[in-house]
């Protein structure tokens, strides 16, 4: 059981190709990290997998437990077991967090079936406590007026409630101070286990001190150019990305 990205080519609709033959397999029970310089295609990858309408796939496939999800609407992908934690979570004025998460869970039920309210709030409060989110949060509008830390905690809360098979965390560390980062990371770590595969996208090694990956990939120019253990993240942290680019150029001209 895995999320397989095979020879993926993609671009902004009508624009330049950003992903150029990307291959990656995320197995259930494992945490993969993708690191890469700005502009390497990290965020594009997450949006493509989630089905963002601004991007188009020009080749390849994404298989979720063997099923190609690229022709599916974003909501169908989510219900199939995919989750994207946004780098910039969106504000939805007038819709309470409780109603929002409830609607997402309701969407997973068969027609005519109703979510059981008491059970729902029980689960919600349990996960909120784990993420140190105060109860008043449920009545607030989705992400509206939230601090960076609150927004990211809300992403992790949604992930905990929706229980995806595969989760992509896009720059979950951006905008967080160290205390917020620790809480968010603890929330993510609590969800690790044999039933979920994770892809952590980050520019900095810092996040990977708290969410320790099994595998680290380096993305440059729309392709995975290097794959190794967690030690690769430290190497990138101390040496930057240029040495990899230099090596690639050397290989290309050799």
């Amino acid at each position: 059981m895995s999320l397989v990205i095979h020879n993926l080519h993609a671009r902004v609709v009508g624009g330049q190709e950003i992903l150029r033959g990307l291959n990656l397999e995320i197995e259930k029970g494992r945490v993969h990290a993708i690191m890469g310089p700005n502009g390497s295609g990290k965020s594009t990858l997450s949006k493509i997998i989630a089905g963002h309408p601004d991007y188009e796939v020009t080749g390849g496939e994404v298989l979720l437990d063997g099923v190609n999800i690229l022709g599916m609407e974003p909501d169908a992908r989510s219900r199939a077991g995919l989750f994207l934690a946004f780098q910039y979570p969106v504000e939805i004025p007038g819709v309470s967090n409780a109603n929002f998460i409830r609607a997402a869970l309701q969407a997973r039920l068969a027609a005519g079936e109703e979510l059981e309210a008491t059970e729902y709030y029980g689960d919600l409060y349990k996960e909120m406590d784990r993420l140190e989110i105060p109860r008043g949060f449920t009545a607030r509008s989705v992400n509206e007026g939230f601090s960076g830390g609150e927004k990211k905690r809300n992403e992790v809360l949604q992930m905990a409630m929706l229980k995806p098979s595969y989760a992509i965390l896009d720059e979950t560390d951006s905008g967080l101070d160290i205390d917020a980062l620790k809480i968010v990371a603890a929330g993510v770590n609590a969800q690790r286990g044999p039933n979920i595969g994770m892809l952590v996208i980050t520019h900095y090694q810092r996040l990977l001190d708290y969410i320790v990956p099994d595998v680290v990939h380096v993305l440059v120019g729309g392709r995975i150019v290097r794959t190794a253990g967690p030690e690769l993240a430290y190497e990138l942290e101390s040496k930057g990305y240029d040495w990899i680019k230099d090596e690639l150029e050397a290989a290309a001209t050799a």
């Binding site: 989630a50 089905g51 963002h52 309408p53 609407e73 974003p74 909501d75 992908r77 989510s78 219900r79 989750f83 994207l84 946004f86 979570p89 969106v90 504000e91 939805i92 004025p93 007038g94 819709v95 109603n99 929002f100 998460i101 609607a103 997402a104 969407a107 997973r108 509008s141 949604q158 929706l162």
Partner: peptide, 22 residues
């Protein structure tokens, strides 16, 4: 807003309704 809701599994028709409600 629409994409965010859909990425949580909410069908676009329900997302429209929920955003309008909000």
């Amino acid at each position: 807003e629409l994409f965010y809701m859909q990425s949580r599994g909410i069908r676009s028709t329900d997302a429209y309704r929920l955003i309008t409600f909000g």
